[in-house]
Write a protein that binds this DNA or RNA. Structure first.
Lengths: 401, 401
DNA sequence: TTTATTTAATTTGACGTTCGAATTTAAAAT
DNA sequence: ATTTTAAATTCGAACGTCAAATTAAATAAA
């Protein structure tokens, strides 16, 4: 049981290489505190297994130094391809990445249904994956692992979807069943955590051990990374930041309660307020109405401005509460919707500083990270990369014996 | 650097013995996954150093079994004595414990000042410690380590009080200076974390890896234990749960902001509301006024009931927010003031269930833990126990070489 | 061109640690 | 007394880490 020390070394070095990018063995040794001898031994293993590769030393060093030149090591992107799948309400997006996290191909498809029976879900996933890989001039066989994120309650350890709005049955062993169908490892998680994982591995949280990621899509979500690990409460339904209460007996939320943050800042919340006295399309797709609302505010419409203003103040309160509770070093506002820019306005971020309990240490950094539409699927791909890396290390551990 | 494996084993076994109480080597092996051989080796070391002791096997086993009887191991209380100090606004409390966490002596003393210059603080602490140890028929020399908790911003790693309402100067290296004066190791921390530590080591969080501790004294505090470790944000001022906002532009808090939870549930908040139309003493010590308020409510006074009722609803919201964010397994409401019982009433705890986002997994357990007046000082003592244990293990690591 | 110098990376050998298997110990049962 | 049973210990093999010595690969100097 204590014989995991070697694997600890492997993990440490591999993740350091992933984080710090190409770097020579000697710096690996310095940064991790592992001796040069051991670094040599372990990196040799990783090289042989194909997880990392040496970068041929550039012929003319820019800074001309004597001595044997350093040889940079980096993650070998070509080691594996992985697919990340985000199953949303009426759409599915799939991203194919290499082992380094480089996006190779993107895919999006509308779905005609919201809820699937287990067997239908599997069939749909297989079909969409076929499409997505074909689009990238690949076949399913070229993919070494799959990551999947969906809304609901997910037991990550068991790989079971306890409940999801996308699946008719409860306690569906999605991970194992899909894995068997694909013949490859599959990793599943609640979608709230996807973006946090993406930020941690290939985004703005790459070198930060503790940070929060707040996402605004239809609802308001949050991912928590503490001590370099994703924190997933005890029930696997993600941090319900959107349903923290910011006002006693406040606005009605679609969850049935009152005063939820989401009931003030989500698009449906804004539009229902605006609906009083304005002409809206009332479409299911709120994009057009939201654009109209923003435009009206910009044009000086008092109602529109009032609506947006309150939303911004509520959002600031919600974020300030997070700061007061976690005292994090960094909060990443990760979003895809340009319409919600007003929430990320400088005034909002500044007002947070006033709301937070005043101490004379620097307040946490709050940054906005705009991703493309496939942010979520990329997070799922990162899960696959992480899980696959871990599996490969385990395999190495067994191999040596 | 990777050569810490032995100390890891020592730490694992020592903490397991502390948690699970007296247990034989073979169970230690099973529970920790460390082989019997290694358990023998390590426990021999710990025995020799005096950190643990064997419990003489009882002459007649109640469950009569054949074979060599198990020999229980337990923490050796007599190994060390430690003192825990809680420096409060106008009082100081000191608890002396043995290495097992058993309280040997309690001490409380009023202070004539709120704020001390560094030199005065040291003199005061030394004097009070002399008193406290004398009360226990000991001398300072009988104490092997000291734990100290105080309000403010504390850099635990450096042992520096960045700022505290109790000290005139900033950035006072309290830990090292006091340690030098006492000739023994000293450990300091923000007081918000004290109770969490106490719950973790000798309280209701003993066998729980993730839990929250909420305390209500004058303010509302919180301690966070995640993955068996106390989580202390980045600035060392503790989780400011009391200043999370539960109402936009709500009641005025003494921190200058509006809508803080504390501004609804702290004693001063209740009394100022009650002050409208009622006769109160207005004393600095709010105990009498609070008792009067509670009594009035019990007697059916409408105003009093309204005041308490809103406080309870706000408190429920605050707790529900914690549940939504952390999804913990356990929340401990740790308090000393009987006057605040109304906050812990069953109706409040039940209403939380309604406020929390509904999933069909069991909601977190919320328990009330009533400690004596010296709860905080006991937490400080636990710090000393923990730190001293760690120091001793380090010493063992060096000793072997 | 050859040799010296410098720095990165590897190899070597010693030491520490863990663990399975064999052994010893301490009790009850025969 | 002897056997049986189960806990604890001892022993030796295998593995891992690391400091020191060595090798490798470059530039600078002769």
């Amino acid at each position: 049981m204590l014989g995991e020390q070697r694997n600890l070394g492997r993990r440490t070095l591999l993740s350091q290489i992933r984080k710090v990018g190409p770097l020579p063995r000697i710096e690996l040794s310095e940064q991790t505190g592992i001796s040069r001898a051991t670094v040599t031994t372990i990196t040799a293993e990783l090289l042989e297994r194909g997880l990392i590769e040496e970068i041929p030393v550039e012929p003319k060093g820019k800074d001309l130094k004597r001595g044997r030149p350093k040889v940079d090591l980096k993650i070998c992107g070509a080691a594996f391809n992985v697919a990340g799948i985000k199953l949303a309400n009426r759409s599915i997006s799939i991203v194919i990445c290499d082992f380094e996290g480089e996006t190779l191909s993107e895919y999006w498809s509308a779905l005609d249904r919201t809820t699937y029976a287990p067997e239908d879900l599997l069939a749909m996933l297989m079909a969409e994956l076929e499409q997505a890989t074909a689009r990238a001039d690949m076949s399913l066989n070229d993919i070494s692992a799959f990551g999947l994120g969906l809304a609901g309650m997910v037991d990550v350890v068991e790989g079971v979807v306890r409940w999801s709005p996308s699946i008719t049955e409860r306690n569906f062993k999605l991970r194992d069943v899909l894995s068997q169908r694909l013949g490859k490892p599959v990793f599943i998680d609640n979608d709230a955590n996807l973006v946090a994982k993406a930020e941690q591995y290939i985004g703005m949280g790459k070198n930060v051990s503790d940070f929060l990621v707040v996402t605004i899509e239809n609802g308001v979500g949050m991912g928590i990374v503490l001590n370099n690990e994703l924190y997933r409460g005890t029930r696997g339904c993600g941090a319900e930041f959107g349903h923290t209460k910011v006002h006693l007996d406040g606005a009605l939320c679609r969850c049935g309660q009152r005063g939820c943050l989401e009931a003030y800042v989500a698009d449906y919340a804004l539009l229902r307020e605006m609906a009083v006295g304005t002409q809206l399309t009332g479409n299911r797709d709120t994009t057009a109405d939201m654009a109209a609302l923003i435009e009206a505010a910009r044009a000086g419409d008092k109602t529109a401005n009032s609506v947006l203003d309150r939303a911004a103040r509520m959002f600031a309160i919600g974020l300030a509460n997070l700061v007061n509770i976690f005292d994090p070093k960094l909060i990443i506002l990760s979003g895809e919707r340009m319409q919600l820019d007003f929430l990320f306005a400088d005034e909002v971020l500044e007002s947070i500083r006033d709301i937070v309990v005043q101490v004379d240490a620097a307040p946490p950094e709050i940054v906005v990270h705009k991703w493309g539409d496939l942010m979520w699927a990329t997070g799922a791909a990162v899960y696959a990369i992480e899980g696959l890396g871990e599996l490969t290390l385990q395999e190495l551990a067994g191999h040596v014996a």
